[in-house]
């Protein structure tokens, strides 16, 4: 029996899609600043990138607030449970049309691999990119006549860390876009993130999942 369940609430969807747009836009403008692309023109790319960066910061502040007030942050705590089963599914089961090893419901939206990857994203990759980006915006060169709060001798380390973060985010984006198609049907995850509703009933045998 399948039931349409409200999985993604409005803020969550707003946050997801705004973040998606911002990160794609930051990626385009950022890799132009990096010298890999030629699209907006360097000067525009810098201005757009800075502007989008501020928007993303605001969004992140709201998202953190939302995660803590709703308790949704608990979704991202990694678990060892069923992680091998999930890996096994992606490597083998998926080709045989085997059932998903984990059950998706409102209290557990993420499978163990997603938990792990999103957790890494949230505590490593995004903080790395955001923090290096903030240094990028706010550093001041040491100057004999001024005492600045954020003196750096060289942009090099900051810029390279920011580049590493950017490469990882693009990698995540590619994998994320593909794995989106591995739901019940190729478009069910996309529909769910657009409308909020997903058919989550389970009419076949599932390994039991706690929560």
């Amino acid at each position: 029996m399948k039931a349409k369940i409200y999985v993604y609430r409005s803020f969550e969807r707003f946050w997801h899609w705004t973040q998606a747009i911002l990160i794609i836009f930051l990626g385009l403008s950022g890799f132009e600043i990096h010298g890999s692309l030629n699209f907006f023109g360097f000067e525009n790319a810098v201005n757009y990138h800075n502007f989008a960066a501020y928007l993303l910061l605001v969004l992140i502040v709201f998202a953190i607030f939302w995660h803590f007030t709703t308790g949704e942050w608990k979704q991202y705590i990694p678990t060892k449970e069923l992680i091998l089963a999930q890996l096994n599914y992606y490597l083998f089961g998926i080709f045989r049309n085997a059932p998903h090893p984990t059950k998706k419901d409102v209290l557990s939206k993420l499978n163990p691999l997603q938990k792990l990857v999103y957790f890494a994203l949230k505590i490593m990759i995004i903080p790395l990119t955001v923090a290096s980006g903030l240094f990028y915006i706010f550093y001041r060169y040491p100057h004999s006549s001024e005492i600045a709060a954020l003196n750096i001798e060289s942009l090099r380390t900051i810029a390279l860390l920011h580049t590493v973060g950017a490469f990882m985010l693009v990698t995540f984006l590619i994998a994320h876009l593909y794995l989106m198609t591995t739901g019940e049907t190729p478009t069910s995850n996309l529909k769910a993130m657009l409308t909020g509703y997903e058919e989550l009933g389970h009419d076949h045998q599932q390994p039991e999942n706690k929560n």
Binding site: I33, G35, F42, S154, L155, R156, A159, L160, T163, F167
Partner: peptide
């Protein structure tokens, strides 16, 4: 003798 965005990058990271 310095890093300049748009011009410089690290070969290994790239």
């Amino acid at each position: 003798d310095f890093y300049m965005p748009g011009r410089d990058y690290s070969e290994p990271i790239e």
